[in-house]
Structures are given as structure tokens and as C-alpha cells.
Simulated assay, not measured.
Amino acid sequence: MRVDVYLPILLSLLLAAISPLVGRRVAPALAARVLTVSAVFTAAATVWSLVLLAATLVGQVPQLVAAAQDDGRRPPDPVPGAIALAAVPALLLVAVRVYRAARAERGTRRALRALCAGHPADTELVVAASPLPQAFAIPGDGGVPGRILVTSGMLCALEPAERRVLLAHERAHLTHRHARMSTAVALAAAADPLLAPVRVTVAFLVERWADEQAADAVGDRTTTARALARAALTAGRRPPSCALGFARHAVTRRVAALQAGPLPPLWPLAAATLALGALPALGALDATRDLLRLLEHVLG
């Protein structure tokens, strides 16, 4: 337990360090899935490691220490007491951060759905009369299908072929449930702040994924790149950070990627990233076994 319990934290740093490389070298759809799964597993293992560190305080309860000494047993000391104590406020901070992140995600979706209120349930495209050029994919909820919200300002800024790109892009977000992926990574980064770079990379990748889907749908990568560039140049204020908007997240890099052509899957790098996400869980599992033996020794 002296080493395993810290493994998820160390691997969080490593995953954060390699996530930009994965985002640049691996096809967006595969890279987004792999990084999301790895981030969720790593964040869960990190939180559990904090729980294990805090649980070692049980072995420092004076009554249990005295009982162990009376029985001729040496009280175990798997981790320094200061670290075990620090794990308690760290867990409270994690709870607050996850709550705030979940509330922000829920609030953004509620606000976007309110803009679509009054439209028939089977309406996919909602056009809002606003000069501000914006477009969002609004995920479904409670049996209500997802919708595409586009302002009149955005439609006026694009040519007919570019409008098809826009709709195909937002439809890809809904089809592949990118909102769930973004939410999962946002909560993982809230639980483990070391994973913040992974969240940024996944946010970029889901937009690249939708770009590629749009390019396939219209059959023209040049038109897709032009639509993205034009939307970015005419867009006004930034959309909510939780929303899946068309002209956001490193538009220049996305345009360049569309012009360069699709990336290969690179399965070896993707598999290595998945393995990196599984290692923290294995380390936390081994630390859990050590803690159970510790508690058996203290309480036995």
C-alpha cells in the first residue's frame, strides 16, 4: 500500500501529459473514446486512493493502538499520518468540485432546452431569431430527442452548402452522444484536477470528430473547412463552456486538420492509452487488499 495507493495520482500526470499527443496522432473518434474511458477510470481510482488514505486513520485511533500494544502487536503505519489527515479535506474538496461541475453541466443544458420550449417534440432543427451567430447540439432528455439550435444570424452568415456542413456537424454530436462523453470527462477532471488537460483534449476531439462526420456527409472537406472558418469569423461571444457549439475549440487547428486529411486509427497508441487508464484501477485494487489486511491486523 505504501506505493500502490499513490499510483493513480502519478498516472494522472502521465495521462495528462500524453493526451495532447493522442489527440494529434490518433483518429478523433477513437482518441476521444479512449481518453474518455481512461480519464474516468483514472479519476475513480484517484478518488478511491484518497478514501484509502483517509481510512488508514483508523489504525491511529488511540484505543485501537493501545489494544494492539496490549496484545503484543505493533500498530501498522502504512502511510504518514499527515498524508492520511490531508486526504480528508481533499475528499471534501473533490465532492464540492464534482457537485459544481455537475450543476454547471445541468444548468447549461436546462438553459439551452428552455430556448427550444414550445416547439413540437419531433422538431430536430430550431431556428432562433437572433443576429448573434451561434449553433448548438442540445442532447435529448427523458424521451425527448436531441435538437439542433441555430440562430438566424448563423444561417445568414453561411452559404447553402456551408449550412449543410453545420447541420451535419451538429447532427453528429447528437448521433454519437458527444454530450455524455464531454460530461464524463468534465466530472473526471473535477474529481481529479490533474486531468484538466485531458478534458481540453477531449473537448477538441469531439469537435474534430463531428468535423470529420460532416465532411463525410457533404463529401467535401474544403467546403467543411470553409464553413468552419466562416462561422468562427462571424461568431460573437463565446458559448457556454458545457455546450457543443460549432465554431469553438481551436478552430484554426480544426481547419488545418480538415485540409490535411483524415488521421489513421493508430491502434497501438490507443491501446497503450487504454492500458494506462487501467493501471490506476489495478493499483487501487492492490492498495485496497493491503488496507483490508491492515484493518484485520488492527481490529483482530
Rank of each mutant, 00 (worst) to 15 (best):
A84H: 04
T56Q: 08
P78E: 06
L53A: 13
Y99K: 11
R100H: 12
R103N: 08
R109F: 03
L57C: 05
E105Q: 13
G107V: 12
T108S: 15
R73T: 09
A54G: 15
R110Q: 09
V88E: 11
A86K: 05
P75G: 06
P76E: 11
G81A: 15
P80H: 09
V51I: 12
A54S: 10
A135Q: 00
A68T: 11
R113G: 07
A111Y: 10
V65I: 13
L112H: 02
A54C: 07
L50H: 06
G72H: 04
G81R: 13
V88W: 12
C116K: 02
V126C: 05
G59Y: 04
Q134S: 04
A114H: 03
R113P: 07
A128C: 06
A55H: 07
R73Y: 08
L52D: 03
E105L: 14
V79Q: 09
L50C: 05
V94K: 12
A90V: 02
V79R: 05
L93A: 15
A104P: 03
G81W: 06
R109W: 09
P75L: 05
P133K: 03
G59P: 15
A87D: 02
V127L: 13
T108R: 14
A104M: 10
G81Y: 04
R74P: 04
G118I: 01
T108W: 13
A86T: 10
L112G: 01
G59F: 06
V126T: 05
A129I: 10
F136K: 04
A66W: 08
L64N: 05
C116R: 05
P76N: 07
R73L: 13
L125I: 14
L93G: 14
V51A: 15
L57Y: 01
D70R: 15
A117I: 02
L92K: 01
A114W: 05
V94P: 12
A86R: 06
G72L: 04
A114R: 07
F136M: 13
D70C: 01
V127Q: 06
